[in-house]
Design a protein around this nucleic acid. Structure first.
Lengths: 210, 210, 210, 210
DNA sequence: TATGAATGAGTCTTCATTCAT
DNA sequence: CATGAATGAAGACTCATTCAT
């Protein structure tokens, strides 16, 4: 039975998103353990009890906050990749999508990083969905690399490892941006990443630029 | 007056190290906030009060656990770098020291990663010493790059950014090893990192290897 | 904007006073250090956590318990002093106010005495307000004495020292009442204090009574 | 069987007194609850365990510290009283003994005051001996008053209450000396106490001095 | 005898979750 | 639906006392 979306559903969804927005600010500032439900409720300007009408636990809020943005981000990256032609442009699209997103959504990335570490510290805790989305994203990038290698746009390397390297490098640059260690623009960061990634550190014998 | 190392000192140091070892396991599994002093004491098979005879707070245990290994690691990397000739070999030494260390000290790296995130989430919390050691390590690597560029062993790139890229790439590979995403040997990982780092993804026009 | 006293305010104030009443009993029996928050909560028939909704620390409860009564007492004494004419009557008013108060508020006085001793043992601990109230009270009494001496209602003596003597004598009689060493009525105690205070121990050569 | 005092006994007694001296300093500064056995042992320059060879508990140390001096003080006062002729001189002797003692033994008096309050707060805690010594002292003073009244050296007043008044006034002056509220010499304090006590506050019709 | 390392019960305080209004 | 007062289970840390050496 397909149930129509009632007004109630809409209001409920609105409330959930309000809470999630508030929660993101708090989690970003304090991390998961140090954030209190009181704090989140106060930021959302609702009573603590109300919060439990929309989420069954502090953890659910956390994961919801994380997943909403992560899906949006993946969508954005996906679009840019599809629009690009060459493997190089597609990779640049992936990196650029993330860099620009981090500029507008520092809060999200802070949470993302802390969740990321939790995955290391206790893999069991991380939600399945979180891992699934990340895996999908990686597969998309890996497919690009494999295709690029097949078309000789990219030097042949182990595709999976190389995918990881790109993902990691991008993530770390964003980390440093957020930590304030790097003051450059997203555009400059993109240029640097692509430069290192494409030509490496070896002394140049000639230009490889496509 | 040079005080001899008494038996008491030895026993005390032994106890401290026992506690630190226990703490490392617990912190590695749960992270700092979620780890309890009770848990650490239980793992060390001592009473909670005893623990406070050797450390004045949970935080001191944490930082001790972290700093002891981090200094040893830096020392090891430093030695390998000094022994190497070319810039490429020195960089490889840095990466190899870390990869091999991570193989023997997974617990340490788990803690390291969680502390690393804390720096993002709340920079104030991170200990000064922790940051100092990291900065020193980066400066050493950066000096190598600058020298390498001057000697034309390395393509000219922004030295600081490039240093970060190497550090980041190494760290992330270790993360993936510890998370179990990568099953390769440290040697294989080293080869891959150097390969990507040196020649990049661009299709090869010829061999660049020194 | 004058905010009306809401029902919530009333309830909260009621709870606070309930807790303070319970705390007074416990503090009076055990003293500050030996009293536990658990004990206070149990006496107030609430959970320990609830207690922290109304007071931010054990110390705040203590000082609240102490200060509320101390101010009321000072007010009462002040009124009686103002209503009296002669210096003798004013002094009697001061003493009587305290004696009667101690009859109705034994718990308060027990706490007061223990706080008083704390001032001796570690002066730093005592709250500023506590000391301020005491100083004000003494100044009022001293002014009476000085006026009385000027008007020749009182024999000339060092005013400050004499004030202390009156305060001390009164306090000690109350101590003894509370310790159960003295079974007399407040009225009898008042008469005795005034008698000794006014005429001393010297054998009488005639009547001095005003 | 009368056991000879062995060398061992002497040493043990010496140790006990060393511990008690150290304890007095600590108790005087921190009060009973806040003083730690560690602190006392450190002040006595012995190991914590050693302390338990000579006293069976922290409380025993406390009471010992208190009782040793209190008996000495009583002895001193007793001697001065015996040497004096008139009731006035005997009373002055009692007061002077205490004032002078407080000048040399501030630590003792601090402890005494805190114990005194404990008697109020929880009479059960106070040692029997402590109370016994105090009672004896009061009886001696009371006998003097009764004799003085019989001989018409003192105006007829309720003897017990008057005794208490003298004891209290003396104690409180010492309290103020120790709290630093009063800067006068013991001699000045004695003169003032006797002055108030003997002639009271009433305006003088003539000299009553004996 | 002397030691001081070890103990663990006891302290204050925090906070996720519930539930009566 | 919304509230926020109430709860009580943890958690970090202290310290009087014991006991193996």
């Amino acid at each position: 039975m397909v149930r129509a979306v009632t007004k109630k559903d809409v209001v409920a969804e609105f409330r959930r998103s309000e809470i999630v927005e508030a929660a993101k600010k708090v989690f970003a500032k304090r991390g998961y353990r140090s954030s209190t439900v009181d704090d989140i409720a106060a930021h959302a300007r609702i009573a603590k009890g109300t919060l439990y009408l929309y989420f069954k636990s502090k953890e659910e809020i956390y994961l919801t906050a994380l997943m909403a943005d992560i899906r949006a981000l993946q969508q954005e990256a996906s679009t840019r990749i599809t629009l690009a032609r060459t493997a190089r442009e597609k990779i640049a699209g992936y990196v650029a999508a993330r860099l620009e997103h981090s500029d507008r959504n520092a809060d999200f990335w802070r949470i993302f990083f802390s969740e990321f570490t939790n995955l290391i510290v206790s893999p069991a805790t991380g939600s399945r969905e979180f891992q699934a989305v990340k895996r999908d994203s990686m597969k998309q990038l890996q497919a690009i690399l494999e295709q690029g290698m097949a078309r000789r746009e990219i030097h042949r390397l182990p595709a999976e490892r190389t995918t990881m390297a790109i993902v990691d490098l991008t993530r770390c640059v964003i980390e440093r941006r957020i930590m304030g260690y790097v003051k450059s623009t997203p555009r400059e960061d993109l240029a640097f990443i692509m430069d290192v990634l494409w030509d490496g550190l070896a002394p140049r014998k000639g230009s490889h630029r496509g």
